[in-house]
Each structure stands twice: as structure tokens, then as C-alpha cells.
């Protein structure tokens, strides 16, 4: 069946070209204008929440990350992201604000492509379902303590919540482990570059009262 052979050969060559295209041409296309920032390049300032974390949990923070510095921030948010993926948080929390459905009022500024052009977004965590709210503008909306208590047992903070509890982020004395600190640092870092007015202006849920 030479005719089949020939056509598969063609397909094979094209497949090879595809490989070349994907690995050779495409990154050039992608990186043409905006370079992909490494995490170190991306993180230029320490968000206040991270410093607070070191003050609020001094012993645990010291043990986990040492001093408050850009280096320890990078370590924390990378570990935080790792755990965010491992627990598949992205199945119930998205990470982009759409220009519709009044989301800019609820969450904050609409997402732009530039925000995602960095290695913290490798792989991206856009998410596909919102059981809980979007997290890309989460920085500073809640205190670190709120997050800690919420991770330990969400229903203590928000009685209606269906979020799983994550007791394994805490040690036998209910003190946060390195993972808990990293996750809180990560969540508090999300959107720290785009907070318009710190606090609750964009937080509809807070304006409506309730669990804040």
C-alpha cells in the first residue's frame, strides 16, 4: 500500500515541521515584545501582608523562611503556588477578572495579558469554575489571620462555605506549618500589583456585610 505510505510520510514530515515550529518559531513570536519575567524579576517589592506574616507568626516564619526579604518572598510564593496546584484550588477559584457581569466592581480591575507574562503563570491558573470567588485581586482583602483561620476550617469564618478544611497545613498545636505560611503569602501576593485602593472598596462582599 504505497499510497498510504506516501501520504503518511508527508504527514510525518509536516509533523516534524510542527515540532520545529512549536519549539523554534513560536517562542520567538511569543517573546517578541514582552519578555517573560522570572519570578525574581517580577517580585520587586514586598507586600505589607508578607511583612505582617513575619510579625504575626514570628517563630514559624523564622523557621520556615528566615528573614523577610525578596528572596524569602520568592520562595514563599513559589511554594504557595505549588500547594495551590497540588490541592487543585484552581478547580473552584478562578484567577482572572472579566470585563462583564460587574466583576470589576466585585473583584477589582479587569485582568490584562501583561499581568500574566511571567513564570508565576507557568502553568497559568485561569481556572474554569467559581464555587468560591476569584482570587487574582485577593491581596489585602482579608487579614493574614483571616486566611489562616479560613484554611483551618472555612465554616468558622463563613458558615455557608463548602470549601474543604485543610487541617494538614497546621501542626498538632494548630500552628501554621511552612505550607500554610506559603499559601497565605501566595494568596496575599495575588493582585498585590494591581490594588487600586487598599482594603474594601472593591470588595462587594465586605460592603454587604457578613463575614468580614
Amino acid at each position: 500500500m504505497e499510497r498510504f505510505g506516501a501520504s503518511f510520510l508527508i504527514a510525518g514530515i509536516v509533523t516534524f515541521l510542527l515540532g520545529f515550529f512549536l519549539q523554534g518559531v513560536m517562542p520567538v513570536l511569543t517573546l517578541r515584545k514582552v519578555p517573560v519575567a522570572t519570578v525574581e524579576e517580577l517580585v520587586q517589592t514586598i507586600p505589607p501582608e508578607f511583612s505582617d506574616l513575619a510579625e504575626e507568626y514570628p517563630v514559624e516564619f523564622e523557621r520556615a523562611f528566615g528573614e523577610v526579604s525578596l528572596a524569602s518572598l520568592v520562595e514563599a510564593i513559589e511554594l504557595g503556588k505549588e500547594n495551590y496546584i497540588a490541592e487543585a484550588c484552581w478547580h473552584c477559584h478562578s484567577q482572572f477578572v472579566r470585563p462583564v457581569s460587574k466583576e470589576n466592581i466585585r473583584f477589582g480591575p479587569v485582568s490584562t495579558p501583561e499581568e500574566y507574562q511571567n513564570l508565576m503563570q507557568l502553568p497559568h491558573l485561569f481556572g474554569t469554575r467559581r464555587v468560591g470567588p476569584d482570587l487574582i485581586r485577593q491581596a489585602g482583602k482579608h487579614s493574614n489571620d483571616w486566611h489562616m483561620a479560613h484554611f483551618y476550617e472555612p465554616r468558622n469564618i463563613a458558615p455557608y462555605s463548602v470549601m474543604p478544611a485543610y487541617p494538614w497545613f497546621f501542626d498538632e498545636n494548630k500552628r501554621p506549618t511552612k505550607r500554610a505560611l506559603a499559601l497565605v503569602a501566595y494568596v496575599q501576593w495575588l493582585g498585590s500589583w494591581a490594588r487600586e485602593v487598599p482594603g474594601t472598596i472593591y470588595n462587594v462582599d465586605a460592603m454587604r456585610g457578613g463575614d468580614q
Binding site: R3, A6, S7, I10, A11, V14, T15, L17, L18, F21, L22, V25, M26, L29, T30, R32, K33, V34, P113, E114
Partner: peptide, 25 residues
């Protein structure tokens, strides 16, 4: 910056070429 989205279409475009060959063949 919108060139980013071109990536997805490029993949499609190249992936489609074998199909085109198949049709002609």
C-alpha cells in the same frame, strides 16, 4: 502584545496542513 493569541492559531494552522494533504490525496 496581542500577538500572543497568534500562537494558538499558528498551532492550528500547522496542525491542519496534514489534513489538507489527506484531502487532496
Amino acid at each position: 502584545i496581542e500577538g500572543f493569541g497568534a500562537v494558538a492559531i499558528s498551532i492550528y494552522l500547522v496542525g491542519m496542513v496534514p489534513i489538507l494533504f489527506f484531502t487532496l490525496w
